[in-house]
Nucleic acid binder design. Structure first.
Length: 486
RNA sequence: GGCCCCAUCGUCUAGCGGCCUAGGACGCCGCCCUCUCAAGGCGGAGAUCACGGGUUCGAAUCCCGUUGGGGCCGCCA
């Protein structure tokens, strides 16, 4: 049987790292097994779902290069033979109603007229009395007379699933292996809301079945929903798919990942200057590993090496420090052109409008490639090539105020003005010659020159930097530094 | 409170009964390279494999219990 998996986000916000990881693992599993990756939108929460969220989720998925074969597409069109793929559109197909009625008819589901407030009160009371806050099945045995009475009052019922009273629900999770629940501890969950919309646990089963899903790969937080859903499959006489429950992603302090820990959505990481390849690679490593403990994967390699048996049972802490390191690794692998293209959107924030067809611009952006950890920091490191120098206070005090600086700068300025081929090799040779013949240590010359032209004590390799700056700017800036010393 | 899941360096992980005096990666420390900062190279510290019992000739690996952490218990998904 061909594998079919799905990622089924509910569009109530941006794509979070947890969701992205679930999507990624489904995608990788589909790739690895030659299966189909489906995207379904679970928007049965009329209040919280928004089209804006759908768009944002799609943007993040595309950014991460997680392409799906079937489902709701970015332009909201539908692709595939099992549509529609948006639950709100599936409602009108009447499928949820159809199967709910079947269960009703067979006595496997029943109408419940309990008011929401009533249920709330019961739950609170149960909590207080330290009893499990589960629905006790009050409406299980309503007589037709009682139902008639409620109807006359105009009360809208919900439909509840009748859970078996005894026995066990057992499943073989692909990650957790045996998972066992006592049916008597499960509860009669609501399948259809008073509004007529299906709830998650019901819609999920119907859709997964009709869409012919072979495997359900989702977060650990769904593990206790699984026995509920499995019982619906059973009641309908359907063969359930295989389940794999992925461990949770936690913050650095071991608690559930939240705003408190910093960025939680993929969009935010994109804005911060991470490469999509980095995110994909890093996310794959959370809760998964292969026997080589490999941590950097080349393009396409994850798709090849992913194996669900390498999934970790225990939760994983999200480590932004390692993420940054990895981004540096990926940035270093980029060609000049790729780096420029990746960094360009972030350059504008520094007021830099550069041109990719200008080889100098390409070189300058790449001059500190081995140092970049975030694309967003490139502009701040190369801006002085294009804008006026701003002298860093501590650089002035530390370097320009060193003894002999004035003489050195005056001397080197004269040397530079006589160079006709202003390239790094010549500049370096002349600079070293100047230092040697005047009895200065190299550093005594190099450092003040660096500060004069860049305003900083740290920066790119000196002579390349001078070359790219050009003779005129270099001399002007040395003059400027000299004026500071007056 | 009930149920479920989980437990290897600070973190991500390798390990599936002898190869483990537990390997790799991030981070940290030191040295080298060097025009600064990085990058790179080399080396180091860091895990009584949560704890306690079994099983076994032998356990990080299997079983039981304890403790700790997480999840779920919605007309949210």
């Amino acid at each position: 049987m061909k594998t079919r998996v799905r990622f089924a986000p509910s569009p109530t916000g941006h794509l979070h790292v947890g969701g992205a990881r679930t999507a990624l693992f489904n995608y990788l599993f589909a790739k690895k097994t030659g299966g189909t990756f489906v995207l379904r939108i679970e928007d049965t929460d009329e209040l919280r779902s928004s089209e804006e969220s759908i768009k944002s989720i799609f943007d993040s998925m595309r950014w991460l290069d997680l392409k799906w074969d079937e489902g709701t597409m970015p332009d909201l069109s539908e692709k595939g033979d099992f549509g529609p793929y948006m639950q709100s559109k599936r409602e009108s197909l009447g499928i949820y109603k159809k199967y709910a009625e079947q269960l009703l008819r067979e006595g496997k589901a029943y109408y419940c007229y309990c008011a929401a407030e009533e249920l709330d009160a019961m739950r609170k009371k149960a909590q207080l009395e330290k009893r499990p806050p589960k629905y006790e099945g009050k409406c299980r045995h309503l007589s037709s007379g009682q139902i008639e009475e409620f109807r006359k009052q105009g009360r809208k019922p919900v439909i509840r699933f009748r859970m078996p009273d005894d026995g066990q629900t057992v499943f073989e999770d692909m990650i957790h292996e045996h998972v066992k629940f006592e049916n008597k501890l499960l509860y009669d969950f609501i399948m259809v809301k008073a509004s007529g919309y299906p709830t998650y646990n019901f819609a999920c089963v119907i859709d997964d079945y009709l869409m012919e899903m072979s495997h359900i790969i989702r977060g650990d937080d769904h593990i206790s929903n699984t026995p509920l859903q499995l019982n619906v499959y059973k009641a309908l006489g359907w063969e359930p798919p295989r389940h794999a429950h992925l461990s949770m992603i936690l913050g650095q302090d071991g608690t559930r990942l939240s705003k408190r820990h910093g960025a939680t959505s993929i969009t935010e990481y994109q804005k911060q200057g991470f490469l999509p390849e980095t995110m994909k690679n890093y996310l794959a490593l959370l809760g998964w590993g292969n026997s080589d403990s490999q941590d950097i994967f080349k393009k396409g390699e994850l798709e090849e090496k992913f194996d669900i048996s390498g999934c970790q049972k225990n939760s994983a802490a999200f480590d932004p420090v390692k993420l940054k390191w990895m981004n540096g690794e990926y940035i270093r692998q980029l060609s000049k052109e790729e780096l420029f293209a990746a960094a360009e959107p972030y350059l504008k924030g520094f007021g830099l409008v550069l041109d990719k067809s200008n080889p100098f611009h390409l070189d300058i952006v790449a001059i500190e490639q081995e140092k970049y950890k975030l694309l967003s920091e490139v502009g701040g490191l190369v801006d002085f090539f294009f804008k006026d120098v701003k002298y860093d206070e501590s650089a002035i005090n530390k370097t320009l105020k060193a003894p002999n600086t004035e003489a050195i700068l005056n001397g080197i300025k004269r040397v530079y003005s006589e160079i006709s081929e202003f390239n790094d090799v010549t500049i370096e040779a002349k600079t070293r010659e100047f230092a040697a013949s005047n009895g200065f240590k190299n550093g005594q010359v190099f450092h003040p020159v660096r500060v004069s032209v860049s305003g900083r004590t740290q920066g790119p390799t000196l002579f390349k930097m001078l070359e790219y700056l050009g003779k005129e700017k270099v001399i002007n800036r040395i003059d400027k530094a000299l004026r500071l010393l007056q």
